[in-house]
Design a protein around this nucleic acid. Structure first.
Lengths: 245, 245
DNA sequence: CCGACTTTGTGCATCTGTTCACAAGCGCGT
DNA sequence: ACGCGCTTGTGAACAGATGCACAAAGTCGG
């Protein structure tokens, strides 16, 4: 399957289909860096510069971008605005995406108020909860609806992205209702594995998972300082002696 | 039961050093599932059952666990409590970890109030901010301190995990101060790449990144419906006419 | 005590992702 | 016009993670 968009610029179809997951996960980072460069007035940027700005290797950056197409100029670099546009388009950010947020507790409040969403092209279309004492409450510009009204809202806004910020026990039930209403992309903040049909994409963000992973590394550092010897570390106090720095 | 190897010293040290990152990232999930099983009264579990409970393949689960040691019984499975203990220990959760949270804005409030931390062995040791109007405010049981008091708190609690929930522009400065105070593990919610010395571990959680990744998939599903054929898509309107060139 | 059945632990093949290194392409100065 | 230096894009080596398949090792019934 050689012969891709030679000379002619756009061949987005096959290219976009084959973008590796790992690359997709880095694209938003590139986009952010490009926006920052644009704000500062830079018009072009080399792979080396953009790579260090985003914390990846320059080779990886180039390979990532090559999956989207050939939008650089050899000897010069990438044009900031143009590259930003193409990444944006690959990510599907050409439009504004409505987001429905379910669960207006501690975290839900924070998410609803998070400015970063709006400025990146996401609009909170509606807030939902099942707790009847919360229905009608105002959070930001939105007012909290009952989850039963989900279909109405989705009927108005069309395809939406769902965000689940409920306690764990409610998550699966909420998820099912989102899916039933036609939502096919879900961001899950509840610490539960969601069962969904195959066409639905779920991403999970688990705060205490992250802390535990950090813990592992922290713990390992501690061991490295204290015990070159295996046996003693099991008996000694792990963090008592700060030997060498 | 949860009698760890006091006699047999050999296993854990060498094993723990070689646990792959991908495995470490899954361990908290296993641990959570094990706790859930324990709560229900199950005492043993097979790799198959635990795997489906956590959404991974059973072979992968067994391989992951094999990096920690051989804690299963062939023909039976794993003892829930014992396995939970070993995973816990591998993650360094044998102790209670103090967490310092910097940035008591929207998200910071939510994090400070998030019950999941406490119940997983993390204690919010202190809340910090630089906004002087917030100093002294009470959030949950803690009261907001000025970031200048960081060293005092860390002096009292010892090694801590740092959580950054500030706006992006402040993140690097805050990070530097955390590192200077001796923090070597940082969870960053600000949408910025943090520059840290090599011995410091950083994990980043970026909410709008996650949404953008979902976007990509959602967008791709939309395209899939419209164009099963690659060539025609070059000529056809890709999707709901865009601002192309 | 034995043999059938269950489930772990792991070598091997596969797949995905990362890094290296360099030819091809482009602008610029001369 | 033409070569020179810079930077991209990419094939190929490398590394890491995943999934398969099966022998080893245990339980249980007879």
């Amino acid at each position: 399957m050689a012969e891709q968009g030679r000379g002619q610029s756009s061949a987005p179809d096959r290219l976009r289909a084959g973008v590796p997951d790992a690359t997709v996960a880095r694209l938003p980072g590139y986009l952010r860096a490009l926006r920052a460069l644009d704000d500062v007035g830079r018009t072009t940027v080399s792979s080396e510069a953009l790579a260090t700005a985003t914390g990846v290797g320059s080779a990886q950056l180039r390979k990532d971008l090559s999956h989207l197409g050939s939008y650089g100029t050899r000897g010069v670099g990438y044009e900031v605005a143009e590259l930003a546009f193409h990444i944006s388009r690959a990510l599907g950010l050409g439009r504004r995406w409505p987001v429905v947020l379910v669960g207006v507790g501690n975290l839900g409040h924070a998410l609803a108020g998070y400015g970063g969403f709006d400025e990146r092209g996401f609009s909170i279309a509606a807030l939902f909860d099942v707790d009847t004492t919360r229905i009608g409450e105002r959070v930001g510009k939105q007012l909290v609806r009952h989850l039963d009204d989900l279909d109405d809202v989705i009927g108005v806004f069309g395809v939406c992205i769902g965000v689940i910020a409920t306690p764990a026990p409610a998550a699966q039930e909420v998820c099912d209702r989102l899916v039933a209403a036609g939502v096919t992309s879900i961001l899950n903040f509840a610490p539960t594995l969601l069962r969904v049909p195959p066409q639905v994409t779920v991403r999970k963000v688990d705060l205490s998972n992250e802390l535990q992973i950090l813990c592992f590394h922290e713990h390992r550092k501690g061991l490295a300082l204290v015990d070159p010897l295996p046996v003693t570390s099991l008996l000694d106090e792990p963090l008592s002696g700060e030997v060498s720095a």
